[in-house]
Amino acid sequence: MNIFRFSGDMTHLISILVLLLKIYATKSCSGISLKTQELYALVFLTRYLNLFTEFFSVYNTVMKLVFIGSSLVIVWYMRMHRVVKLSYDKELDTFRHYFLVVASFVLALLVHEKFTFQEIFWAFSIYLEAIAILPQLVLLQRSGNVDNLTGQYVFFLGSYRAFYILNWIYRYFTENHFARLISCISGLVQTALYADFFYYYFISWKNNKKLQLPA
């Protein structure tokens, strides 16, 4: 464990807490893409298949359970909660995210560490996470003004993988642990997708104005 990876995990955790706060406090999920939440639940379920077979540390196991649990709770809230589901932007959240799942799975079948069940699903989860934010970014552009908590959620979610990139660089030089090419390239693509969001987020913060994404 190093400071970069720990910061990344904490940033990721904060993004989830901010999203839970927004949904719980406002009893609304307007501006949140259910499709991105479903993709993230799939990412965690397929990435942590070794949850019960390999033990690294209490921290590692607890965080996996928190990520899987929170993503399922959020999907449940948005689909089933009698009040929250009414505020879901169903007509705006129309990204065909099934294509993202199929594309990631096909790519995982072609590019993976080893042709084993766990490795293919691990690669699938890495590829899927890189593009899982797309429905959310599209929804933000369509829904015009973005409420603060939603903006902060996306900001922290986009920042965490940037910390992981620093972690892979650090591990490469210190532990001679060459992070997998799969993680590195996907992590760079994932962070790059947030580039224009980060730009508008920074502008809104600098001018102290509401976050506006151009349609």
Binding site: D9, H12, N50, F56, F67, E113, W122, N167, S183
Partner: peptide, 10 residues
Amino acid sequence: DPEVKVHDEL
């Protein structure tokens, strides 16, 4: 490298 790579990251 032969060492089995494990996914110790989240």
